[in-house]
């Protein structure tokens, strides 16, 4: 509304408290085997993880899905079967039948199992949400301990959209019974490449 902006800003200016300083945020660093902490966190949030030493192991998995006739999209150029063109322009109703999406994770957070996935890697913002099974591939060296380090590694507005994904979609809205697989993926599998 035309005057509301000015009215709100004026009222805030008149009513706001005396200045309070903005604190610096420490890193709260923790040493240790981050990969194992990360794997433990993934398990806790209902994701499965596989440690691999090369991408060829991910390729093998991907091929096994293809052979089984799975409808999948692979947005990772380093893997075999990179096929974004088939789905890039697809709308939601066309994507509804998508089974599996392979997407690169940028940064993993050991403490909570969250993985930062940015729009340029997911290609289509719908991929990580509309598929039944999401496969994220992350380098072991991109695992940090906590969110403070993670935010130092990422640029949140580098792409128009980015998200921390921590496990498969879930809900406990019926009597607090945990149900894995709400509206998004029913499954999350994470390949950790060292």
């Amino acid at each position: 509304m035309s005057n509301s902006r000015e009215n709100i800003l004026a009222a805030i200016n008149a009513n706001k408290p005396a200045p309070v300083e903005l604190p610096e945020i420490p890193l709260f660093e923790r040493k240790g085997d981050l990969v194992n902490v990360f794997i433990g966190a993934l398990e806790f949030i209902g994701a499965t993880s596989v440690k691999v030493t090369s991408l060829s192991e991910v390729d093998e998995y991907l091929e096994s899905l293809q052979q089984a006739g799975t409808r999948l999209v692979n947005t990772i150029a380093e893997l075999n079967g990179y096929n974004i063109n088939a789905y890039k322009k697809a709308n939601a109703s066309e994507l509804e039948a998508l089974d599996t999406a392979f997407i690169k994770g940028r940064v993993g957070v050991a403490e909570n199992g969250a993985i930062w996935v940015s729009e340029s890697d997911m290609v289509n913002r719908l991929f990580p949400f509309i598929c039944r099974k999401l496969v994220l591939v992350i380098n072991a060296k991109d695992i940090v301990y906590n969110m403070h380090e993670a935010y130092r590694r990422i640029q949140v507005d580098e792409d128009g959209y980015g998200t921390f994904i921590a496990g498969p979609s879930k809900t406990a809205d019926i009597e607090q019974s945990l149900v894995v697989g709400a509206h998004g993926p029913l499954e999350l599998k994470v390949f950790i490449v060292s």
Binding site: E111, G113, Y161, A166, G167
Partner: peptide, 17 residues
């Protein structure tokens, strides 16, 4: 909120697609 270490999705919207 729930004792989870983080919600499943923490989505950052900066520009419309």
């Amino acid at each position: 909120a729930t004792g989870q270490p983080i919600t499943t999705y923490s989505s950052h919207f900066h520009r419309p697609k």
